[in-house]
Simulated scan of single mutants.
Amino acid sequence: MAHNLLRRQSLHSVIQQALAVQSPIIIDGAMATELEYRGVDTTSELWSAIALIQAPQSVRDVHEAYFEAGANIAITDTYQANIAAFEKCGISHEKSERLIGTAVSAALEARERYRRHHVNADDAFVNDSFPNYARPLLVAGSVGPYGAFLADGSEYTGDYHLSAAAYRDFHRRRMQILSESGIDLFAFETMSNIGEVQALIGLLSEDFSDREAWVSFSLSDSGHLCDGTSLETAATVADACPQISAIGVNCVQPELVTDAIGHISAVTAKPIIVYPNNGDVYHPDTKTWTSCADALSLSDLAPRWVEAGASLIGGCCRTSPTDIHNLAQAFHQ
């Protein structure tokens, strides 16, 4: 136990650096929703990753819109961007690798454009951890689940099974490209299957020992992953890895979040990250949404989540730069 504690304390965490400057940290919102708003058809099996082929500038513009809205962290458009998915669509291995790099470049360019536009901001930043700007601006490399590659809604059930070695082989090359392209950390997101989570943590420890990641789970209810694993069990698995710098949930209904934070905080002292959907209901069988006009907004709900223990907050499906702006304004006016 003492050895593990020492390792945790020695890890140079960008999340901890950011939280030392600002809390809560604001995560960005949906990518696909904004791409669709800008005219990109995301109905293919590649979902939002199709824009890396058809409209990479739109990906950059969405990232920049979220930075302008007040987001501290941009999540790359690589949730469904992996070598196998691109090759399944007839794209060469070499081009598939380049497209993953394109996703990182789009986020990095958006960050630099934002910094240039605000170089004379009144709130000049003085902390050495994040030079040249008033607040931390990070790029997280999205590592979506194997279930997303299946493109059949499996990330909402967790009902898929590979060996640990097969999970690692599936994720390794994408993670290598993300790391080499300049991300600040990995985002293991919408994780619904505990076996895949364990494999990813093992891959992180063995192949990316100088990198950190957050893990955010997809839930069937406030206390269980979609595959039935208790959230406390899953959070305990994540807590045991010193390279996991935040633990939480995403792509869930907002009403599940407060109780989920309680389950996570019961087993870890690490920062808790939450970025739920906007309250609309998704139907994986038809890949359609039912709008929920009376759902409370992120900015209405977020103070409860902070009180419960969350310190990184954003939005997932169907959220927009306006949602993120209102969220940021609720805490950092």
Rank of each mutant, 00 (worst) to 15 (best):
D122F: 14
E155V: 00
A103F: 05
P145R: 10
H117A: 08
S192Y: 07
L138Y: 05
G144D: 14
N127W: 07
T157D: 01
A199W: 13
A121P: 09
E180I: 14
A134H: 12
N127R: 11
R168V: 04
N193A: 06
H118M: 01
A106F: 09
N193W: 04
Y160P: 07
A148V: 02
N193R: 11
P136I: 02
G144N: 10
V119A: 12
V119M: 12
F125W: 07
T102I: 01
V143R: 01
S129I: 00
L108S: 12
F130I: 04
E196A: 04
G141R: 00
H118R: 05
Y160N: 09
T157Y: 01
S142D: 13
L162T: 02
F149R: 09
H118P: 07
L185V: 04
S154Q: 03
F149Q: 06
A148M: 06
H118W: 01
A151S: 07
S179Y: 13
A166R: 10
Y133C: 12
S142A: 09
P131Q: 14
A124S: 12
R168H: 00
S105Y: 14
A134D: 11
S96H: 11
P136S: 03
A107Q: 13
F188K: 13
E97V: 09
L137A: 10
A140R: 05
N120K: 10
F170N: 03
G147K: 13
T102Q: 04
G158E: 09
A107F: 07
L185Q: 08
D184C: 01
R173H: 10
L99R: 12
E112Y: 08
L178K: 06
R98Q: 14
A199N: 12
L138P: 02
Y133G: 10
D184L: 00
R173N: 06
L108N: 15
S96I: 04
R174D: 08
A106M: 13
Q176H: 05
F125D: 09
